[in-house]
Design a binder for these strands. Structure first.
Lengths: 215, 215
DNA sequence: CGAGAGTCTGATCAATTGATCAGCTATCTG
DNA sequence: CAGATAGCTGATCAATTGATCAGACTCTCG
């Protein structure tokens, strides 16, 4: 039986398997995001994971399925990152919560630019991979839209249609880190440093929430 | 003699050549931006240009060189687009000029998202193609930085380090159009329509120039 | 007109791609 | 212990890749 058809059962009855599987998924996420779906070869992924190339087809039936697994793992990471702070948070006002969400989102996109790179690669043209990404992106879009509509109603952000705010946030937030090597080369700033990440979050919040007041 | 070594001389002494060359460059720009360097095949490009595949190696010595020619043509397009309005413009104050530059830039990124797609594909990791892009991007970055520093000094934009403003503009501006198919699917908006393009330019200017005043 | 250079194509190359298959090994089960 | 099965690999497949080459065609110019 192909193992990919029944994940998440009788763990630890057998030697390893799942650790190896995770290493493959991580290597795939790294290489797919850096070189795109077509640019990353299964042999490169296998080499980085330290396994033989046919093992990818054993655990995942195809390159396409492996790509989906890599995407899933990155969205899981995003979920964990976004929920980590919000869980511990009691109930605060909407604006404070929104500010934290925005800052956490930028922090994630800076520390894991892989996800945004993949989205930018695969959603420029309609297709099966864009459809797959949409199943993950759509709920995020919906809740973000709702958040911005709510904030605009309260006057906490400018009266801009939520969709535009969404793309300004998801574009203006991660791009500096998605283009990390370019940014380093152009500006000399290190976009992986905490200082730069915080400064960018400050900049976005300053513009979105007018905070601290401007002018 | 390989024709790619001496471009731009005795035009019209021979049958065609350059029209064909242009069709190839355009097809290359289209396909490289849509499917990335590795994802686009020389046969696909040749098919879209309506020529045989070996002709690509005749006019351009390699796929890499063809990619460079496609990039050059897109940056030329950007130059023309950005200068078109500014030429006709007399001397106006810095802020008005900056607002026009920002709006023109967003207009270009909406009507020619190919260039930003290519930059996003090839500047995520250091390499020869990123270096080539940098020769075009660096002057743009430098002048934009200078513009923002000047505006911040005048209090026309918030006091945010210019590099961050640069990535907020070049990220938040084009992303909606780079991810056009996704945007259409998510929001129902048509990111190729003039109305949406103008609304996005309004949104960016609202945030950057606080215009109209907020709150 | 006829030599020659520039343009373009069909056939083909070696290399690389994702995928398959047979078989090895180690563990679990009865 | 013995059969079965999950995990994994080396060898190999057909398909596709970018590139090369010889030759056909066309226009120019002496």
């Amino acid at each position: 039986m192909t193992p990919s058809s029944e994940r998440g059962r009788d763990r630890s009855t057998r030697p390893s398997a799942d650790p190896t599987r995770d290493r493959i998924v991580n290597a795939a996420a790294e290489l797919f995001s850096a070189r795109s779906f077509e640019g990353a070869t299964t042999r490169q992924i296998a080499a980085r994971a330290g396994v033989a190339q046919p093992l990818l087809n054993y655990h995942f039936t195809s390159k396409e399925t492996l790509w989906q697994a890599a995407v899933d793992s990155l969205f899981t990471l995003l979920d964990q990152h976004m929920n980590a702070r919000l869980q511990t948070l009691g109930d605060v006002d909407d604006v404070t919560r929104a500010r934290l969400i925005v800052r956490d989102f930028i922090g994630f996109s800076a520390r894991h630019p892989q996800l945004h790179r993949i989205i930018l690669q695969e959603s420029t043209a309609a297709g099966a991979r864009m459809d797959y990404l949409l199943t993950h992106v759509r709920p995020i879009y919906e809740s973000t839209i709702e958040m911005f509509a709510n904030l605009a109603e309260q006057g906490a952000v400018p009266a801009i249609p939520p969709t535009h705010l969404y793309y300004i946030l998801t574009g203006g937030g991660p791009t500096m880190f998605v283009l990390g090597p370019e940014c380093q080369e152009l500006s000399g700033l290190d976009p992986t440093s905490d200082a730069v990440i915080e400064a960018h979050a400050d900049a976005i919040c300053r513009l979105l929430f007018n905070d601290p007041p401007f002018p």
